[in-house]
């Protein structure tokens, strides 16, 4: 088992590196608070805007909250929200794409035109518009981002299903007496996983970034809950006066997490030889 894992890693250095980055940030966010037992919400105006020292390794913010504790707590929120967005958007989007790719006809046309209409908006604008409509807050921001990811999954899934469905072994499976449901689950879906996994890993990065962006413009997570995007916003106004640590630490973590996710996405699509049957490699990103 370890040897197989070793070979898997050797063939996918980039993805493994990306995964390691994500894992380190997740460990930092969840294990960190067990070691660094400081309340991320406790205000202490007397110790506001302190630079990094051993008492506050990442310094304190404008109301004296410990930036390290906040960054870790924010990491939990951002990672969980990104995973939820990725999973929910993925299930819905892939479901739509699968149905469209399998059934064809009017249903396919209608659903794909709707998807195209959604795709006409840049995803960030779409997420922004939906969360504005739903009102500021973590849930509405997450919902907006989720909806904005659905078209990418649906389009890709549909084209994957159409591609795989036309492969000769699917016809052979029918000739062997396979029921349609079994052909879909055993022969079509397994051949779409890889491309969809690439898509999902890039969506995780997009979700974190967009959640932060919505927080940045005041739409997403509301104060005082720590979130990287809102922390970056509030840190921004102190950069010029020299208190760089408020915004830089959450910014660096956000950057690292997004890079990690994109490395996973690229690595999965990249260096492993893609068999003729799974077609040319692509790493679509909702950008």
């Amino acid at each position: 088992m370890w040897r197989r894992a070793g070979r898997f890693v050797a063939g996918r250095r980039e993805a493994t590196a990306g995964f390691a980055i994500v894992l380190v940030i997740a460990g930092f966010s969840w294990v960190g608070p067990l070691v660094w037992r400081v309340n991320p919400l406790s205000v202490s105006l007397l110790s506001s805007l302190l630079p990094p020292t051993s008492r506050h390794p990442f310094g304190t913010d404008e109301v004296g909250r410990d930036v390290l504790a906040r960054v870790m707590s924010a990491g939990q929120l951002d990672i969980l929200a990104a995973l939820a967005i990725t999973a929910v958007g993925g299930v819905i989007g892939m479901g739509i794409g699968l149905a469209a790719g399998l059934r064809g006809g009017v249903a396919e046309n209608v659903s794909m035109r709707l998807i195209d209409a959604l795709l006409a908006f840049p995803p960030l604008i779409l997420a922004l518009a939906i969360s504005v409509a739903l009102g500021a807050g973590t849930t509405s921001a997450a919902l907006g981002i989720t909806i904005s990811t659905i078209p990418f999954y649906a389009r890709l899934m549909r084209s994957e299903v159409l591609r795989v469905r036309a492969l000769p072994f699917v016809e052979a499976a029918e000739a062997s007496g396979g029921r349609p449901s079994r052909i879909v689950t055993r022969h079509i879906l397994p051949h779409t996983w890889r491309v969809m996994a690439i898509q999902a890993s890039s969506v995780v990065g997009y979700a974190v970034l967009t959640l932060a962006a919505l927080g940045f413009v005041g739409l997403g997570v509301q104060v005082p809950t720590p979130e990287w995007g809102t922390m970056i916003t509030s840190g921004l106004s102190y950069v010029l006066s020299g208190q760089w640590w408020i915004g830089v630490f959450p910014g660096a973590l956000l950057l690292a997490l997004v890079i990690g996710c994109n490395l996973v996405a690229d690595g999965l699509g990249g260096d492993t030889p893609v068999s003729l049957l799974t077609g040319p490699r692509r790493a679509p990103t909702p950008e």
């Binding site: 492969l167 000769p168 072994f169 016809e171 052979a172 499976a173 000739a175 062997s176 055993r186 022969h187 397994p190 051949h191 068999s275 003729l276 049957l277 799974t278």
Partner: peptide, 14 residues
């Protein structure tokens, strides 16, 4: 039963 034309593509590689 039918054996389709190309044995290189009619077997599911997975």
């Amino acid at each position: 039963q039918i054996v389709l034309q190309n044995p290189y593509s009619t077997l599911d590689p997975r």
